[in-house]
Design a protein around this nucleic acid. Structure first.
Lengths: 248, 248
DNA sequence: ACAAAAGTGTTTTAACTACACCCATGG
DNA sequence: CCATGGGTGTAGTTAAAACACTTTTGT
């Protein structure tokens, strides 16, 4: 047992602390070729839950911020850097981890995987479809479900879809992102109008060539690209967008 | 220094962990008598930030969940139990606390103060108006600002206003809550219609007597009273309400 | 009777839905 | 020329805002 003498406010007596990250990316589904939601998991190489799949994560370094640790999770498992990163929730139930008490601060990230990143797969790192996951280690199923809910919720009012895409994109590609995440078809005509009504997207004078039909115009996202979302960003002057909907 | 030998995944090397709680209540303002937003703060009785006002908080007990600790913060400083309790954010910046690295998981609560609770004030516990706070200890100004933003944001789509009120209330009282929190007047006619359109509120056959004018009908909140809001509550079947708006 | 809040009705505006229709390109 | 997705127009529906109006009480 640890004995902490003379420690002010005895915070050192607290349970262990870890940072985990739910990483979302869009990949063409093996069947239809349409984009679908995927996330990378890592295989447990020790007890508890040896050999089960789990979210990338680990202890918080003394010299890194919470989001730094999350970005490190991401870099270590996928060699990608986050296009979007936001804190999800702190999970601290008593029975999350057999044996030891553990509090996990979980982030969620959107990335745009390139070929190199996908080749990163190995025996202990693998991408899964976000929709039908097997049983994961710890309470990670619950965590992923909540992250999925947040992603879908945020997709409905925020401008995060662009983080799945490159610097230029067609409106149909944006719609594909929405349809993949929300799992429902959207009216192309109305969707286009809603996007164009949004301020932070601008047409370029380029068109996507090589398609089978009329070449669609390419657009560019002009809002600032917030890689990381923090409370001060949320309630401060510049970002005039009015947050999330749907807690009970 | 601590020496941790043979500790799996070395989470014990992590920074200290504390739970703090932003507690909101409505009190009649000293001037106009209209309700305004208040919150209780505690005076620091040790370094750092000795004598400055701070959010109620403390270390997480080994045998309590995160929300248990938050409810304990609340009980210890105000002797009240939460009508509404939700996790706000985990703050973990490197320089939050001079000297030692500290991660704070912050909750926010709504309570309905009774006379006994307000008498609870002492040399080291005091209620302040949420709008004009002096400089607080640590990063607690930033935390309160974010909590305020969340409260206001959630007030605009969710059904949390009732947690400031008793079991029966007039529609005008609900409007006063909204006006106090959002700091802007609302049209009584339209506000009434919006409330009555909401499912979770039902008229009683009672009227509030003793007013200076026509006695208004009393209503009752019939939605379930979720004292605590957790991720599984949010994304699960029963609660069909569609979350928050406005992250960047 | 009058003041003031409780409560109702009506008009206008904005936003979204559904869907018909035209346009441009590869085959 | 035709199939197909890109892109535009338009009518119907719904929700909210603005505000005039009636009702009911205490004084």
């Amino acid at each position: 047992m640890l004995i902490n003498a003379n420690v002010s406010e005895r915070q050192q007596a607290s349970p262990g602390l870890a940072i985990s990250t739910v990483i979302f990316a869009l990949r063409p589904s093996t069947g239809s070729g349409r984009p679908t939601l995927w996330l990378p998991l890592v295989r447990r190489v020790r007890q508890p839950h040896l050999n089960m799949w789990a979210l990338p994560g680990g202890p918080l370094g003394h010299d890194e911020s919470l989001s730094d640790a999350a970005a490190r999770n991401l870099a270590e498992t996928t060699a990608l850097s986050p296009r979007y990163l936001e804190q999800l929730y702190a999970f601290g139930g008593l029975d999350r981890s057999p044996g030891q008490r553990l509090v996990s601060i979980v982030y969620w990230a959107l990335v745009q995987p390139d070929v190199a990143a996908l080749a990163q797969e190995s025996e202990n790192v693998k991408w899964f479809r976000a929709d039908d996951l097997d049983e994961l280690a710890f309470d990670h199923n619950e965590i992923v479900n909540y992250a999925l809910w947040r992603l879908r919720n945020k997709m409905e009012y925020g401008s995060i879809a662009y983080n799945f895409l490159g610097s230029t994109f067609t409106l149909a590609q944006v719609r594909e992102v929405y349809e993949a995440v929300l799992n429902r078809p959207l009216d192309p005509a109305n969707f286009r109008r809603q996007l164009r009504a949004a301020v932070d997207i601008q047409p370029t004078d380029m068109f996507l060539q090589g398609g089978r039909h009329r070449p669609p115009r390419l657009y560019r996202y002009t809002g600032d690209d917030p890689a990381e979302v923090t409370p001060d960003r949320i309630c401060n002057p510049s970002t005039i967008e009015s947050e999330h909907r749907s807690n009970p």
